[in-house]
């Protein structure tokens, strides 16, 4: 009788130990850190950052002709003041055999964190119309600072 009790208590102890070990393993393996489950919060850039904005409604009304006015917004999206921002615009055709791209430049002397300024360019988009086949026009805008902060946006206009 005592042998049976001894055997039963031994089996119960073994069961409890095994179950405990499984629980430990299960908890260890199934508990991703809170960090990995947390959705990405909206990025709040730290350090310098530039953002370029090209108004789509204005882009939609541009024609493949000279003197097409386009206002480009430059926003300081970082947390430091930026100075001597160079803004350059390259207008070209989708047709790479036409080498006559048009280049435009402007600058922003200083831009506080979060500040936004606009620069207007009178673009000659006729270069795309010179292609023998209908070609898309490309407006490539870059903003750069001497400290190496930069941003690029490319607009593609249908033929």
């Amino acid at each position: 009788m005592s042998g049976i009790l001894w055997w039963l208590s031994g089996a119960a102890l073994a069961f409890l130990l095994t179950a405990g070990a499984f629980l430990l393993l299960a908890n260890a393996g199934d508990s991703p850190s809170d960090k990995s489950l947390r959705p990405d919060s909206p990025s709040t850039p730290s350090g310098p950052a530039l953002e370029l904005q090209l108004p789509k409604d204005r882009l939609a009304s541009l024609e493949h002709n000279p003197d097409q006015n386009l206002a480009i917004s430059i926003r300081n999206a970082g947390d430091e003041r930026l100075s001597d921002i160079n803004v350059s615009v390259k207008v070209s055709s989708e047709n790479t055999a036409l080498s006559e791209a048009r280049y435009y430049r402007s600058s922003v002397e200083s831009l506080a964190a979060g500040e936004i300024v606009s620069r207007e360019f009178a673009l000659d988009l006729s270069v795309a119309a010179r292609s023998p086949e209908p070609a898309r026009a490309i407006i490539e805008v870059r903003a750069t600072t001497p400290s190496g902060v930069s941003s690029v946006r490319t607009a593609i206009l249908p033929a």
């Binding site: 882009l59 541009l62 490539e140 690029v152 946006r153 490319t154 593609i156 206009l157 249908p158």
Partner: peptide
């Protein structure tokens, strides 16, 4: 296929499907 203007955050020479 594009029916209106497209704006991308990349230089033109790296863009793929628009050309």
């Amino acid at each position: 296929v594009i029916s209106g203007p497209r704006v991308l955050s990349a230089p033109a020479d790296t863009i793929l499907t628009d050309f």
